[in-house]
Nucleic acid binder design. Structure first.
Length: 919
RNA sequence: UGGAGUGUAGCUCAGCGGGAGAGCAUCCCCUUGACACGGGGAAGGUCGUAGGUUCAAUCCCUAUCACUCCAACCA
């Protein structure tokens, strides 16, 4: 083993070994309990970002944990074809060569996209491997592979047959750059600066006028009414009258609708049902006609009269100019408002009425609401035990989820793209009938004409993703995999795709699997931000590339950082300092292991006498380490018993952390155990224990066993370094040669009541700390080896301390530590150090500056006085004595007595010192 | 407008009814035989603010301020 932890030297080697030996594979026919996570399929166009890294960290940790716990763990990987995104990328490539998809034609273009996908589509999965992800790659799926396409068709046709999917003209969001319809979710409301134009609409009979404010004056060409509030006194009498539409001179009615806000603008609203969602609703209520103003390229069509052929921007400009010319523009204000922008290209989208395919999701949503409502009432364990309930974690998301689900609108699923699942509907040239079919159609289902053409549009990418948890398992075939793994255990993803993906998976999963949910738990992780808490973005230039982090710190340090910072409901603020700190942790674990292996003779270091190799197969008499220890647990040396207890307590906490999606708790526990217990104390104690023949053997076994178990405990979080170290451990029973740690059993969680052993070790640790503090605060040279005596408070303590003298002496670096004979106690030139149940005497001569020691004691005195006052105040309250639990009152009284005794000791020590100072 | 969350040491965060914790940063000492990606010591906090419940509140309740996120609206 190298002296320093160097992740680059082994991470890729270890990964290759795991993958080659089939460690990631799940088994359809296993009799182990199933556990499945469907990995959110990254876009084929994607490059690894920190969101992926967080996803992988959490899901891989959960999968590895469950796998080691004896589950048939399947982490299902795959990629998403990402319709618009991928098509745009390939079109951009083509543009470089002066080509376009239209020049190429549909078939050739799709061919090109497939070629692009073959070439670049697995970059992202390669990157996931660098993080140590352990999905079953042999099952990797792609949303457009044949099996998944079959599932898509099955769902489309079934929904159609059930009357839940239809084609119709509805108002949708249209992007003029991407030339496609978008769902509500793909439109991002964005704050933009604009204007507020106040326009005069003159009454037809010339008796007056209305002023109407608008941010989109060009849409007035499509107005079919003006609406006022029915209760608005100003306009009440005008309802039923008509106004002349400015510029076009069309006559339109004034209608009354409670939607209008009297306070806003002039209180009169122009109604454009063709290009505004709310106006469209109002139009339906009042039977208004719908005018579609723009062609697919975003130019004004024949309904725009003289403005025909202009783009939206041009039309707006001209219309404003014309309004001014005719004196119809009352005034213009600056106005910041939010407009819908295309998620992909950021261009302002236009609500437009268009023929599209829609899914009537309302009935599906009701079931989806019920499943989550049920989950809300149940505990995690109860949800796990059934198939119809879903638990959202953190639970705060449920309200948002209900609100969205309750107000859900029909889902526009058709996209005017070429890359995606082409819609399985065929139109008859002759009779116009639409044939929707699972298999390709060559003649009309109604008139039998062979003049049929398939719908050129494709489905929304999220349509296929919504089937992911079951389509990847072979659905609609009744596969063994589906039977084994559905419903999946956990859906883990970012909250930003709760509606895009999670909600739709729930709806589809329940609907197509007989009311069985696609997953039992949903864990929504937070956002990864930069260290100032800002969103990472290319424009801000604060993007941290995960691959750079892995290169500089190693995948384990990165994963450990993400785990440690991924508290529920809190964003992850990535900072290099923190990652560096966790790299130091990996180094610590590495070196602690080196220490163990050196002591056992399996690692030799420069300048160090080689130790003989410990033969564990002989030492443990053919038993695995754990069994050997269990058999003599009660007789172990207190230090060995103590570290085992510590480990068991840590294991329990780590289990709970994983169980409740609190990876930060798991990570912190691992960190604290390894560093603050195993390294800071156990290893220090072991140095003495290994010296003594009475304790050497059992210490070797315990040291190795706890290390081995610790590696297992930490493995889901830091898989590489733990595996690498594990492979260096000496041969022993119960572990096959070259057995991968990742397939070893996970440490069992059980926390026993602390025994006398931990109490003893606790006392020794306290003593050592008191002695160290004395040294530190008095500036005693590190090389000095004082001769110290001790005096215990009572016989029991005396015995306990006597048992620890050897270790206290060694760790506190003392020349000697012996029971006080009365000599130093009476010596005014000896310092007194108080610790729990014991007092130490240190000769001051040549060691300590008396004034410094006095200062230390004065501080202790002040602390003691504060303690006493605090407890006294508490005990002075009659209500406390009478109402607080009796044990607590007794405890406080004991505390007071203890503090008082301590104070007396301190005061005595001080007065003693004063004598010295006086001399 | 509605919903959720967060305000604790200089920074990043744990804790959540019985006297405030960690990591990093700071200061002092140490190249001690695992580790300077290290060891030892120290300093640092009216736990956002104001009320209330309780014998007891950083923790529970109410109000308030600040920030963040989600959803809706935005003529």
């Amino acid at each position: 083993m190298d002296k320093a932890y160097n992740p680059e030297s082994f991470e890729s080697r270890i990964y290759g070994w795991w993958e080659k030996s089939g460690c990631f594979k799940a088994d359809d026919a296993s009799d182990k309990p199933p556990f499945m996570i469907a990995m959110p399929p990254p876009n084929v166009t994607g490059a690894l970002h920190n969101g992926h890294a967080l996803t992988v960290t959490i899901e891989d940790a959960l999968t590895r944990w469950k796998r080691m716990c004896g589950f048939n763990a399947l982490w299902m990987p795959g990629t998403d074809h990402a319709g618009i995104a991928t098509q745009m990328v390939v079109e951009r490539e083509l543009a470089k060569d002066g080509l376009s998809r239209h020049k190429l034609g549909r078939e050739a273009f799709i061919q090109k996209v497939w070629e692009w996908k073959e070439k670049y589509g697995n970059i992202i999965t390669t990157q996931l491997r660098r993080l140590g992800a352990s999905p079953d790659w042999s099952r990797e799926r792609f949303t457009m592979d044949s099996g998944l396409s079959l599932a898509v068709r099955e769902v489309f046709v079934s929904l159609y047959e059930q009357g839940l999917l239809y084609r119709g003209a509805r108002i949708i969001n249209w992007c003029f750059r991407c030339h496609t319809a978008l769902s509500d979710l793909e439109v991002v409301p964005t704050e933009r600066k604009g204007h507020f134009w106040h326009v005069k609409y003159v009454l037809s009979d010339g008796s007056g006028e209305l002023v109407i404010a608008t941010t989109r004056p060009e849409t007035l060409l499509g107005d079919t009414a003006v609406a006022v509030h029915p209760e608005d006194e100003r306009y009440k009498k005008l309802v039923g009258e008509k106004v002349r539409l400015p510029l076009l001179d069309r006559e339109i009615p004034i209608i009354a609708d409670a939607y209008v806000d009297r306070e806003f603008g002039s209180g009169a609203l122009k109604i454009t049902p063709g290009h505004d969602f709310n106006d469209n609703e109002i139009g339906k209520r009042h039977n208004l006609s719908v005018i579609n103003l723009f062609d697919k390229e975003g130019r004004v069509n024949e309904h725009g009269g003289p403005y025909k052929g202009r783009t939206i921007a041009e039309a707006r400009e001209k219309i404003v100019a014309d309004l001014i010319a005719r004196g119809l523009l009352v005034r213009t204000e600056d106005h910041a408002h939010s407009v819908g922008v295309c998620q992909r290209c950021e261009r302002v989208v236009e609500p437009t009425v268009s023929d599209q395919w829609f899914v009537n999701v309302k009935p599906l949503a009701e079931k989806a609401i019920a499943a989550v409502k049920l989950g809300e009432k149940l505990s995690l364990a109860e949800v796990d035990a059934r198939e119809d309930a879903i638990k959202l974690v953190p639970e705060g998301w449920v309200n948002t989820y209900y609100q969205w689900m309750e107000n859900i609108r029909d889902w526009c699923v058709s996209r005017q793209l070429w890359w995606g699942h082409q819609i399985p509907a065929w139109y008859c040239d002759k009779c116009g009938h639409i044939t929707v079919s699972r298999t390709d159609v060559t003649k009309c289902g109604k008139c039998g004409s062979i003049g049929v053409k398939q719908d050129p549009d494709v489905l929304d990418t999220w349509f296929s993703s919504s089937l992911w948890p079951f389509s990847t398992l072979g659905w609609p075939e009744k596969t063994k995999a589906l039977e084994t793994f559905y419903p999946t255990a956990v859906m883990e993803t970012g909250f930003d795709i709760l509606f895009f993906w999670v909600a739709r998976m729930i709806m589809m999963g329940l609907h197509f699997n007989g009311g069985r949910a696609p997953f039992k738990r949903v864990y929504l992780h937070a956002m990864v931000r930069d260290e100032k808490g800002q969103k990472m973005s290319k424009t801000k230039g604060n993007v941290i590339d995960p691959l750079d982090i892995i290169r500089d710190f190693g995948a384990d340090a990165f994963r450990f950082t993400l785990s440690a910072m991924a508290g529920q409901g809190r964003d992850v603020k990535l900072s290099f300092d923190r990652i560096g700190g966790y790299k130091a942790f990996c180094n610590k674990l590495w070196n602690a292991s080196r220490y163990v292996l050196m002591r056992l003779g399996y690692v030799t270091a420069e300048g160090l006498a080689p130790q003989p190799r410990t033969d564990f197969t002989a030492l443990t008499g053919g038993k695995p380490l754990g069994e050997w220890i269990s058999a003599r647990r009660a007789k172990l040396h207190p230090v060995n018993a103590w570290i085992l207890e510590c480990f068991e307590a840590a294991a329990e906490t780590v289990h709970r952390g994983f169980e409740e999606f609190r990876l930060n708790e798991a990570a912190n526990e691992v960190f604290t155990f390894v560093w603050n217990e195993y390294c800071d104390w156990y290893i220090e104690f072991s140095k003495s224990l290994l010296e003594s023949p009475a304790t050497a053997d059992e210490t070797k076994v315990c040291m190795l066993y706890v290390l081995e178990q610790t590696l297992a405990l930490a493995h889901p979080l830091i898989p590489f370094v733990t595996e690498e170290i594990f492979q260096h451990l000496p041969p022993r029973h119960g572990v096959r040669e070259k057995e991968p740690l990742m397939l070893r059993p996970y440490p069992v969680a059980k926390r026993a009541a602390p025994t006398h052993a931990s109490q003893l070790v606790g006392l020794w640790k306290n003593s050592i700390e008191a002695l160290r503090a004395f040294r530190g605060e008095n500036g005693i040279a590190p090389k000095a080896r004082p001769k110290v005596t001790f005096e215990a408070a009572d016989a029991a303590h005396a015995k306990d301390f006597q048992a620890g003298v050897l270790y206290i002496k060694a760790i506190a670096q003392l020349e000697s530590l012996e029971p006080e004979s009365g000599k130093l106690k009476g010596d005014s030139a000896a310092a007194e150090i108080l610790s729990e149940g014991v007092k130490f005497y240190v000769p001051l001569a040549g060691l300590v500056d008396v004034s410094g020691e006095k200062k230390r004691l004065e501080k202790e005195k002040a602390d003691a006085l504060k303690d006493i006052e605090h407890v006294k105040n508490k005990l002075a309250k009659e209500t406390f004595i009478s109402k607080a639990p009796k044990e607590l009152v007794d405890k406080e009284r004991e505390k007071l007595a203890g503090f008082a005794a301590k104070l007396a000791e301190i005061e005595r020590a001080i007065s003693k010192l004063q004598k010295v100072a006086a001399n």
